[in-house]
Design a protein around this nucleic acid. Structure first.
Length: 350
DNA sequence: AACTCGTGGGC
DNA sequence: TGCCCAAGAGT
């Protein structure tokens, strides 16, 4: 495909975007001034591997509580981690704070792709997206939507992830000099609403004309993906230790690794071993309260919940008593929120 | 380069 | 129901 038709593809997409852009809280309407870089950056980080629907409430909560990057930079770590609880990929929250503090130190966000790429939590995608959307730079923005659209548009048969260099090269050829931010968002909207993974709506697609996969007759076949390996099932235990029917013992997880930096129930170390050791933070007696299942990216966990029935608390250290009536403010990641629900439900029955 | 790292929704 | 998938980054 020659350069003039590449330009035509961008023009078709931008026309479509002008008419059909989704209205999103972090987005400016097509043709209007770019939104605050802080909001663009925050939304892009939240949207990493995360659906728009899941992000909306968190974005509203964060921007209400911390309206500027400077305000976020001044926040306490545990406040931000608790506010992120439930959104997943908690390294994002740790990097978010590190990035906010770096930007506060700099005085503003870098306005180039290269400068943005040097910030914590901004990889190739996010740096390009913020450069294009917030600063009007021409940047080649490649996310999973763009990978899918480009794979189909050019009928790239090589499986992901090996095809990424070819996809990037093709994306580069169709990225316009002007309105690169709108173009990137147009590609993402197209991927989210028209060129979807399972059943692409080619009749609604503004670039079905030049689309090679469409011409070949089975666009949903692309992109080809490498087979993924089976998910292991891991066993673990978590411990519910209650005092005076009013407080529960919570710990803070280490700053890296699974659920790193998050408040949690004490557990037996299932995250670090094939199976947990089974030992709790104090000597029993324990009573089983059942188990909860949870699926992570690369393994599934069956978490057995043990409730402490004794009345002494010797041996507890590096944790805090947390009031049961404020448990929803503790910022427990979903696994432990499930376990807490189970513990409280068991009490209800008893 | 291959692995780690969450979660909820859609089909 | 189980599996796939989502605006990826860090190591």
């Amino acid at each position: 495909m020659d350069a003039s038709s590449d330009t035509a593809i961008a023009a078709m997409l931008l026309d479509w975007y002008d008419a059909h852009a989704r209205t999103l809280p972090w987005r400016a309407a097509p043709g209007t001034p770019a939104p605050d870089p802080y909001r663009v950056w925050l939304s892009e980080v939240m949207l990493q591997q995360t659906t728009v629907a899941a992000v909306k409430d968190y974005f509203a909560a964060f921007t209400t509580r911390w309206p500027t990057v400077k305000a976020l930079a001044a926040a306490a770590d545990e406040e931000v981690m608790a506010a992120w609880a439930g959104l997943g990929y908690y390294a994002r929250a740790r990097n978010l704070l590190a990035c906010a503090r770096e930007v506060a130190r700099l005085g503003r966000f870098p306005d180039t792709e290269e400068g943005l790429r040097a910030l914590p939590g901004l990889g190739a995608y996010t740096a390009a997206a913020v450069a294009a959307i917030a600063f009007g730079r021409r940047a080649v923005v490649v996310d999973a939507n763009v990978e899918r659209v480009v794979s189909r548009l050019f009928a790239i048969e090589e499986p992901l992830p090996g095809s990424r260099p070819a996809i990037r090269a093709k994306a580069d050829t169709i990225t316009p000099q002007r309105r690169a931010g709108d173009f990137a968002q147009a590609m993402m909207d197209l991927g989210a609403t028209v060129c979807t993974s399972r059943s692409p709506r080619c009749l609604l697609c503004p670039i079905s004309g030049p689309c090679e996969a469409r011409r070949m007759g089975d666009p949903a076949r692309l992109p080809v993906k490498a087979a993924k390996k089976a998910k292991a099932v891991r066993q673990g235990r978590a411990f519910w230790i209650e005092r005076d029917e009013a407080e529960v013992w919570l710990v803070r997880r280490p700053g890296s690794g699974m659920l790193g930096g998050m408040r949690a129930l004490p557990d037996d170390g299932w995250a670090a071993r094939i199976d947990g050791s089974g030992e709790g933070p104090l000597t029993g007696p324990w009573e089983s309260a059942g188990k909860v299942g949870h699926v992570f990216t690369h393994f599934a966990l069956e978490l057995n919940l043990a409730v402490y029935l004794g009345d002494g608390f010797e041996g507890l250290e590096d944790g805090e008593w947390w009031p049961l009536d404020r448990l929803n403010e503790a910022g427990l990641p979903t696994l432990f929120a499930k376990a807490a629900r189970l513990a409280l439900a068991e009490k209800e029955d008893a």
